[in-house]
């Protein structure tokens, strides 16, 4: 990797200040950033490591919401009794990210901020209608994801926690890329008081998206049968070595039905 300066500030404010440097980047778990830097595809001038900042990790129930600190590791989300009770689909999703060692380092905040089109957490955030809390404001998940590796985060803005409203039912089904184990198609289905939401990751050529036709079909009848005939338009989907858009479109249906079945 290219040389960089390393900073490990003790507060969010100091971290934000350090991020004022040109080409500074936040280091959370580093599970995506460091491999990218090793391949010299990213070359930040300053790495601002959040690990010393108190209060950025932890899991709690706050009323009708589950609140997860940005630096909370995937493994801790997966193993949390609180998460398993409140949103079992979210705990299951966390257990499917990367591999056990990656889950010990990778963080929810890092995953959301990176917004890899094949990442898992964006599907949960979008389907559950999460609120992404930063050092500056609160952002609804629907407004947060802005396409491939793009988010609503501004320069110097740091995710501090994520608030998930508790759904009635939820589940995540993932078809893994055979090589990388990232999501080739991941479908998160949530039935909430506000209605049913279906979010798809891994497949969209502009990142995570909601599946309106499935949401409509499931609104009145939350069962796999309700979406058996719902087609997914392949035109906006990714094609690569491991599957073309038609295949991904088909898998969206399969994963959605399986998720609904698991949630129901």
């Amino acid at each position: 990797m290219h040389a960089f300066e390393y900073a490990a500030p003790a507060s969010v404010a100091d971290a934000a200040a350090a991020l004022a440097n040109e080409d500074a980047k936040v280091l959370a778990g580093g599970q995506t950033l460091l491999p990218t830097m090793k391949q010299r595809l990213a070359a930040p001038s300053v790495l601002v490591d959040l690990r010393k900042i108190d209060g950025l990790s932890g899991i709690s129930r706050e009323g009708d919401a589950l609140v997860i600190g940005a630096m909370t590791r995937h493994a801790d989300v997966a193993a949390s009794k609180v998460v398993q009770d409140a949103i079992p689909g979210l705990a299951a999703l966390a257990a499917l990210i990367g591999d056990p060692a990656v889950r010990h380092r990778g963080t929810i905040g890092g995953s959301l901020a990176n917004n890899d089109p094949a990442a898992d957490y964006p599907a949960a955030a979008l389907a559950l209608g999460a609120t992404i809390v930063t050092n500056k404001r609160e952002i609804a998940a629907g407004d947060f994801f802005k396409g491939l590796f793009e988010t609503a985060l501004e320069d110097g803005e740091i995710i501090t926690k994520v608030k998930f409203p508790l759904p009635e039912k939820s589940a995540y089904e993932k078809f893994r890329n055979p090589a990388s184990r990232y999501a080739m198609v991941g479908v998160f289905v949530a039935k909430t008081k506000a209605g049913v939401r279906v979010a798809v990751t891994g497949a969209g050529s502009s990142g995570v998206f909601r599946h309106a036709a499935m949401e409509a079909a499931l609104a009145g009848n939350f069962s796999p049968a309700a979406i058996a005939g719902v087609k997914t338009d392949a035109s906006g989907l990714l094609s690569d070595l491991h599957g073309d858009a038609d295949y991904r479109a088909h898998l969206v249906g399969v994963m959605a039905r399986r998720a609904v079945e698991a949630a129901a």
């Binding site: 055979p178 090589a179 990388s180 990232y182 070595l241 491991h242």
Partner: peptide, 23 residues
């Protein structure tokens, strides 16, 4: 079932890491 080296039309190796070459 899994492995296969793929070059594209320009002769670039598409499967040049474990992210793309299935082990």
């Amino acid at each position: 079932l899994m492995e296969g080296a793929k070059y594209d039309e320009d002769g670039q190796l598409v499967t040049a890491s474990y992210m793309d070459y299935t082990m």
